[in-house]
Design a protein around this nucleic acid. Structure first.
Lengths: 230, 230
DNA sequence: TGTTTTTTGTACCATCTCGCAAATAATCCT
DNA sequence: AGGATTATTTGCGAGATGGTACAAAAAACA
């Protein structure tokens, strides 16, 4: 039971929901019928947590129902069937991850510092979780669902491309600023940086200790920025 | 239905089984009861294929039964329950992968050539499969099962360590032979090589075209061997 | 031939799976 | 107040799930 209140204290709830909506700039639509007993945002977050922990197939609708505090028909009405809920969870994950990274990617720091921060944030994301490290949703999704489902596959591939591109922009700028040798290929360095992200995501999932993961990250940074300079 | 013959043509079957046993040096034990209608080796191979395609949770005993040609009681008797079968499949996968790699790792080729060959074999393994690329069992297993299952987790971690170690030995030897700069750290390079393996495993699973995967591999090799030499 | 041993085939169990239909409840609008 | 609208609740149902019991079958042994 998570957000299951028989008497929803409607005023407080709608107030918080309202402020959330207003913050995002949308006009408050004044819904017509019976008010929702759940908040889609946080319900989706709970679903995401579950999917990240167990994967698509091993997560049942009962689990999702229990975690979100919504019973099955409500879940169905709000998010569609299990697959749709999975996709929406994945989109939410991507949005969260992007939000956590984007500032660092854009920051005008020395390349080395920037990489350190990016990888540190990634480790935070992958290692968090009460019941063991949750890893990277993209990697898990790629491993299991992307083979058979074209729509999910497209999202995963787009995720890879997005990360590669962000890293490439990083290295390009660093090269312009003279932090890298003129022979350095930003594209190649970006793919190796992504590879580092992927390897720590997988290894974190197998509960490799943070120290070891940080050692991998530090070694990778040395090669990436030291490779063609100094 | 795969190896389901009502009239097993016992002579041929037992002959091949015998030769297999004799080849491995064991005396033929002359089993006592009703002879098996299946060959454990090839049945395990079929199970492995299924698990690689769909993962643990999404593979049902019915699927396994159909693919191996063994009915459930036989499956259970031969390999134990689903989890045990999964573990045995994973061990088989590791043995196969090791067999495919070990010669190249030991070969006395220039480091660059050796890396090219290793990654090429890896790509062959990850991209093969009738119903889409099968990816790397270790990566898939790490992503889904390793979090919750200590025994599986230990195997996965050991798999990572084994790969890291093999690459490290490669780079160490190359360094001794003067193919790498004296500043090169074989350990770090090995982890980056493993990271490259992991990234192509994941991306292959998302059906990234082989050309692109090869480009990633080539870029990685350039950095790995060019990083501290030339 | 008859006993023993091992594997197979059929059937079954209890549980869980996803999705839905019908009834109930809470709000808005007139 | 009374309909309209939207959500929630209960519970169903057809099927799949992992696992097992039991008898028939096929071989070796005595």
């Amino acid at each position: 039971m998570v957000q299951k209140t028989r008497r929803p204290a409607a005023s407080a709830k709608s107030a918080s929901a309202k402020s959330l909506l207003e913050a995002s700039g949308a006009a408050v639509p004044k819904r017509r019928g019976r008010p929702r007993a759940y908040q889609p945002e946080i319900a989706l977050g709970k679903a995401l947590d579950l999917f990240r922990k167990d994967g698509f197939a091993a997560t049942s609708l009962d689990d999702l129902s229990a975690a979100t505090g919504m019973n099955r028909p409500s879940l169905y009405g709000a998010f569609g069937d299990k697959r749709e809920l999975y996709i929406k969870s994945y989109q939410r994950y991507r949005a969260d991850a992007r939000a956590a990274m984007i500032d660092i990617f854009k920051d005008e720091l020395p390349i080395r510092k920037r990489l350190e921060r990016i990888f540190a944030v990634a480790l935070d994301i992958y290692l968090s979780g009460d019941a063991g490290p949750r890893g990277c949703f993209t990697v898990m999704t790629a491993a299991s669902e992307a083979v058979a489902d074209p729509e999910i596959r497209a999202m995963v591939l787009e995720g890879f491309a997005e990360l590669d591109k962000a890293f490439a922009a990083c290295f390009s700028r660093a090269k312009e600023k003279g932090e890298l040798a003129s022979t350095a290929d930003p594209q190649v360095l970006a793919q190796l940086a992504s590879a580092t992200i992927h390897t720590i995501a997988i290894r974190a999932r197998a509960r490799m200790p943070r120290k070891q993961l940080e050692a991998i990250v530090n070694g990778a940074i040395d090669v990436l920025v030291g490779a063609a300079s100094t």
